Every structure is written in C-alpha cells, then in structure tokens.
Simulated scan of single mutants.
Amino acid sequence: MALSCKTIVTSFALLAMTGCTIIPGSHFEGIESGEQIDNVEKELEKVNIQIIDSSLINQQKQTQVKSFTPSSLDGVDTSNYQYKLGVGDALTIGVWDHPELTIPAAVQRTAEFDGFRVDPDGTITFAYAPNIPAAGKTVKEVRNELVKRLSRVIEDPQIDVKVVGFRSQKAYVTGEVNTPGVLPVTDIPLTLVDALNKAGGLTESADWRTVTFTRGDKTEIIKLDDFYAKGDISQNRLLKHGDIVHVNRNDMQKVFVLGDVKRAGTVGVNRYGLSLAQALSETGGINENTADANGVFVLRKRNLETDGVIADVYQLHAKNMTALVFAEQFKLQPSDIVYVTSAPLARWNKVLSLLLPSLSTVDAIDDLSGN
C-alpha cells in the first residue's frame, strides 16, 4: 500500500533528523534526538498537505480572475479635471476681427516660441491688459479676465486662449522602465498607467506586481498586477506636478528548486507566471537514476497567526504520466520551494558513502594492530 503524503513528509523529516546523528557533531546542541523528532511531528500538524491532481488544478483555476486590460483612465475621475497654469507655460491669444492684437508666428518659429509666457511673478501681459494673474488659474479663468479687461476698449471681444507649451508641471518615472525620465503634465489627464506606457513599458527585470507612488512626503505601494490581472481599477492614480512613479527590480520574484535535481538553484517568476514543470526544466529536471519521482514537493509559506498553518505542501506523483500535465498546469508563486527527494535506495547509498570512509579507517587500524 502506498504511503500517504503526510507519511512521506514525516518519514523524510525523521530521516533527516536521524541522519544528523550519523555524522559526529551534527546534532542540535541542548536538544535530545527524541525531542527533535517530537518537535518535527508537532510542526507537521500545522502543515496543510495536498496532492497535485485534477481537483487541485481546477481549484487553482477558479481562484484566478480572468485577465484583461482595463482602460488607463478606469478608476480615475477626470470629469472635473482642469489644467492649472504655471510659471513657464506658453499661451497663444487671439482676438476675433482684431488681427492687430494677434502676433503672427514668424517663419520657422513655433507658436510656443512666439506665445505669451507666464512670468516668474505668475502673470502674463497682453495689449490693453497688463499683469493678468495666470499661475494657478485655468485657461477659462484667464480668458474671462482678458474679456473683462479688453471690454474697456473693444465692444464684446471674442477671445481664444490656448496653451501651446506645457513647461511648468512634470511627473517622473524611474526604475525598471525602458525609457525612464520626465513627463509633462498637460491639459490631457495623465494617469499612473499612462505614465508607465509613455516610459516604454516595464523592462524584463521589472517587478510587475507593484510600483512605488510618491506624492510629497507620502509614499504608497500600487498593486499593478491587481490592476491588469484582476481589474482592480482603484490602483490607478491621476498624476500631479512632482509625483514620482518608481518601478523596482524583480529580484525577489523567484522560486527555489532544491534536492535531487541536476542543477539546484533559483528560477525567476516573470509576469506570465511559472509552472512546476517549467521550474524543474530550468534546473535540468530530476535525476532519473537517484530521484524519487513520487517525492516532488512544493512548499509554500503561510502565516501561522492568521491562517492557522505554517505552510502548504503540495506533492506531485511524477511516476504517473498524467502528473506531467498537472506539473505544467500547477502555477508556482514567488518564494515557493520545490524539493525533490531521493529514492530510498539512493538515500541508503548516501548513508553508506558517509560510513565507508570510517570503516576503511577501522580496517586500516586493525591491519596495523595485527602486524
């Protein structure tokens, strides 16, 4: 009769503990061997163990919300958005039926170059309307003030005001994006997602799960993956002057593959996910001659205080051909530990390899004594 998954894990843990006693000095100081085994058994009671089968795969799929790409403006109220002018912005001002009041753009000169700039004192000056407050005002408010001033010399003036140079306000995108830099805040609403797109998108080494958003002295973590993969539109932000969006590296998004595999090590989890089959493949696969195909485990840490368990342990019976399909469908999470155990004979051979040098030494001493 096949051993249950918990029995296998228990046996493996006990073997590991008893194996320590074979090597001199490799015990826990102050703790007897029996206490160590008791502690292991108590800890195993706090572990949730499951077999990787069709039922678990279906359960995993049901918990995953269908991925889609929401609009970059979703979750951001732009209905009342109005651009506020600042120092350095350039305006064009036109008065209908009064071309003498409009400065035409010269040849090979832009409207921004010939426009009216908001001076360091926050004002602009126009014909018959000097020192109009502009900084912190909307285009509509500046237009209304111009109409009021020009009405003294022109009957019912029709005035057109446009911003042709947005120079006063900027947002910053830094970190793991293809083109980090400065983005102007304009009369078109700029969201956090817009800013990432304008910066060329995330690099291959970027942490796609979260970005850091800083406004003034307040910093918050934006769950970017929840926005794209789960449709959580509350994660988007409307950017203002001085806002900083920083994308971290993906250094922490890894799983660890250990045990009887050809190349133990870490495997990165990218934005498209990582399956158990991919993780084993990246490390060269299991050692066919020594590994226990039924001893492929995935350990996933949990919070004992909130969840009541230390970890989830998933076991794959890789000797079953169907299990290869399950391995391809089982999605790993960052910080998961994939562990492949050795077959019982291989483990015994390892123990012998530790004992043989000692036996050889004893034989050599006996030979010398006999002589």
Rank of each mutant, 00 (worst) to 15 (best):
S4L: 03
L14N: 09
F28V: 14
I31K: 15
N39Y: 13
I52L: 09
S55N: 11
I57E: 01
V65I: 14
K66H: 10
S67T: 03
F68D: 06
S72C: 03
G75N: 14
V76F: 10
V76G: 08
T78H: 08
Y81S: 11
V87K: 01
I93V: 15
V95E: 11
P99F: 03
L101W: 08
A105T: 15
R117L: 02
D119V: 02
G122S: 06
G122E: 01
N131Q: 11
V142M: 07
R143Y: 02
E145N: 13
R149A: 15
L150R: 12
S151N: 15
P157H: 01
I159G: 04
V163I: 13
A171N: 12
G181A: 02
L183I: 12
N197F: 05
A199G: 00
T203F: 04
A206H: 07
V211L: 05
V211R: 08
F213Q: 04
D217M: 11
F227K: 09
I244N: 14
V245G: 00
V247E: 12
M252F: 03
G259A: 02
D260M: 04
V269I: 06
R271N: 08
G273S: 04
Q278A: 11
A279W: 05
G284N: 06
G285F: 07
A293I: 01
F297N: 06
V298M: 02
D312I: 02
A318K: 09
M321S: 10
V325N: 06
F326L: 10
P334C: 06
I337E: 01
A346H: 09
L352P: 05
D363H: 07
G370H: 15
N371L: 08
